[in-house]
């Protein structure tokens, strides 16, 4: 039942829905500008796309580094050397508040990106400021937690379990600290230089960084705190 007598093969095909430029279909009227060619034929991608991709690779390498800390912690979770375990130390309501703060800051960071997209100076700065304050609140709570643990003799030198705990949570805290410094410089740059293309690219990278920190925190509060407090 083949009806392939007069219909050319190109007309049976979808007119390249994803604009990959592989279909030999050139629009209906034949003016020469039907479907645009794919990205391969359109020259290199815009700088913004390339910068975003490169920063995404960096973030993934950062996550791979964190996976080493996570593996160490998972292996050393029971090596308490007679000292306190996660069940004795972790205050889950405090962890829940920290989680809420970081999640809210991730959301306001996204709102700042939307405001930037709308080219609103005021709202971008407001949302970035809120993001920074929420991140600062998270850091303060974490510092208090660390100080309390060290004060009751459960510092990183107490056991292998606590060493790995302070390493993985502290490394995330250092990342948040670096993110806050970056946030401050971004706010200053927007204030002084405005929405120039290079500033917009930096903002994009900062957004990616801040959201990635929240992703790491999701793994952290699940594996270190919730499973650690239950086991």
């Amino acid at each position: 039942m083949s009806s392939s007598q007069a219909v050319p093969a190109t007309h049976l095909r979808e007119p390249d829905p994803y604009k990959l430029g592989r279909a030999p279909y050139h629009g209906g009227s034949g003016h020469g500008h039907g479907e645009p060619p794919g990205h391969g034929a359109g020259g290199p991608a815009s700088k913004r796309v390339i910068v975003g991709y490169g920063f995404w690779i960096f973030l993934l390498s950062d996550i791979v580094m964190f996976s080493g800390f996570f593996a160490a912690h998972a292996v050393l979770q029971d090596a308490t050397a007679g000292g306190p375990s996660g069940k004795d130390l972790f205050d889950l309501s405090r962890v829940a508040i920290e989680t809420g703060l970081l999640l809210a800051s991730s959301f306001t960071c996204g709102m700042a990106a939307v405001a930037t997209e709308a080219r609103s100076h005021l709202w971008t700065q407001v949302f970035l400021l809120v993001t920074g304050l929420l991140g600062l609140g998270f850091l303060i709570m974490e510092a208090q937690e660390f100080a309390a643990m060290i004060a009751e003799g459960a510092g990183p030198q107490r056991s292998a379990f606590l060493s790995s705990f302070f390493a993985v949570v502290g490394c995330h805290g250092l990342h948040v600290t670096a993110g806050l410094l970056w946030l401050g410089t971004m706010m200053a740059q927007i204030f002084v230089k405005g929405f120039r293309p290079n500033i917009l690219r930096r903002l994009l990278c900062f957004n990616l960084f801040w959201h990635a920190l929240d992703i790491i925190w999701v793994a952290l509060f699940t594996i270190v705190y919730l499973i650690g407090a239950g086991a």
Binding site: K19, H39, G42, A45, S46, R48, V49, I50, V51, G52, Y53, W56, G110, A113, V114, E117, A118, P197, L204, C205, N207, L208, H211
Partner: peptide
């Protein structure tokens, strides 16, 4: 940037409401 259909991770859509 605005004309090409490329999207990097973290890039928003065009409409505020959708974002």
């Amino acid at each position: 940037d605005s004309e090409s259909g490329d999207v990097a991770p973290g890039v928003e859509g065009t409409s505020i409401r959708a974002g």
